[in-house]
Design a protein around this nucleic acid. Sequence first.
DNA 1: TTGCTCCTCACGTCACGTGAGGTGGC
DNA 2: TTGCTCCTCACGTCACGTGAGGTGGC
Lengths: 274, 274
Amino acid sequence: MLSIGDFARLGGLSVRMLRHYDAVGLLVPAAVDPYTGYRWYDAGQLARLNRVLALKDLGFTLDQVRSIVDDEVSAEELRGMLRLRRAELVSRMAEDADRLARVERRLRTIESEGTMSEHEYQTKSLDAVRVAEVSETVGSVDEIGQVMGPMFGRLETALSAAGVAPTGPGIAYYDVRDDGPLTTHAAFPVDAAKVPGLDVVELPGAERSVNVVHYGSMATIGDTWQALARHVEESGLRPGGACREIYLQTPADQTDWVTELQQPVVPADLPVQA
Amino acid sequence: MLSIGDFARLGGLSVRMLRHYDAVGLLVPAAVDPYTGYRWYDAGQLARLNRVLALKDLGFTLDQVRSIVDDEVSAEELRGMLRLRRAELVSRMAEDADRLARVERRLRTIESEGTMSEHEYQTKSLDAVRVAEVSETVGSVDEIGQVMGPMFGRLETALSAAGVAPTGPGIAYYDVRDDGPLTTHAAFPVDAAKVPGLDVVELPGAERSVNVVHYGSMATIGDTWQALARHVEESGLRPGGACREIYLQTPADQTDWVTELQQPVVPADLPVQA
DNA sequence: TTGCTCCTCACGTCACGTGAGGTGGC
DNA sequence: TTGCTCCTCACGTCACGTGAGGTGGC
């Protein structure tokens, strides 16, 4: 018979772990002194202990380990558990590889710029939303700034004339994937199915969109869009839909505006859809 | 001002997380209604939120994130934190790769044998230990079985004659790395610095040893040694010192003996020391 | 008597998820 | 009135580490 300390040394684990395994019924001592409560182990229990440690080493939880060593799972179920574990490990390693790439990118930017960049990009999915909108075609992206203000003016006038209240902040969107003239839209999300004088359309959602928040006037939003486009390209992605500007906060002073830029994306190696 | 629900949707995180970040002081609402306790956020707080989410994404703890976004760390310290994070990720990926290899090995054995093998190998370090011993040279490993019994007989006789009590179970060891005749040792750990009629030596420790427990008589211990040797080779290792047998449990009936086999190892690609 | 080993609580870890039980405004 | 959103506790998670406070045998 071995004391808990000796058994722990033999098994290469802590006394506390042995007490824990006793408490959860994973490995109970061969005998327990009824007066002192001392636990006594048998060297033969090393068989079970080593199976426990080996399974734990594969990353199974103690509860999974218990059902395996107690023979509660068939060989077929065990194969299933091992395959699941394999899949979990593979995906965790992939996530860690991504994380590592992001950490290394931060290190590079901090070493070249001495600080972290001011833009924080985030990836999320976009829900589809119904909007009332006005549209206009311009020759190039440079002309968007001149038309967007008046477009929102007309939009708001039409909405209040119809007595329809927007259900969220204003949205501007346009597709810049093709060169040449492009159609810009000024929109507000609405519940109504139709609004006199306006088009009511369904803005499609996106599985994946890279976003960034722009603070301040629209005069510099072009720079933020360019930085976002660079980030998308460096991430091995490309635009997968019309980009959007969400005017989250629009007080009188444009310096205090808060605008979210959203760029739906797909992997760069995905073929372009017709 | 945005309600907690709107701000959560905007940021792509849960309401509960925002409450948690408030509780730990990581991101407190721009305003809190003193009567209802309602939290109100400002769209401008998206800047901080996005920094928080980006840093969390790199794997930093909330406390680390807080000190970074609160500018409590210098650019130099931040570089250090990023480098540490990188090292942690690299080592975790290496561990996961090892774990994955072990999972796949289990899958292979379970698919070829329909069950898990009965031997559980473990890796641990060995402490150095002082022993009193007798030694003998034999022609090959096959002859060890014949001499070991009598050797332990002489050893025990000498120890009890000297009034020295062993401090642990009996140990047999021998170095089989070279072919040809080899010297076997039968030993007991002792505290005494010298014992009449016996050699007292320091058995060196080992940084890394692959072990397995053998249950039953010594008649079949050769098979267990061979399986251990195969396992060592398949693990990309090779013997790095004398192998040992620890007689953990030796009742009268040899069928109930429990013996731990220990094989100190080094990486197989390490050059052989002179 | 001093060490050493053993014991039983019981809190702390980390970042929330998940009810329970209740409130306030459309 | 029914939904919906918001609130504050407070427990649960996972596998122990780490005291606190005390006991038993050499």
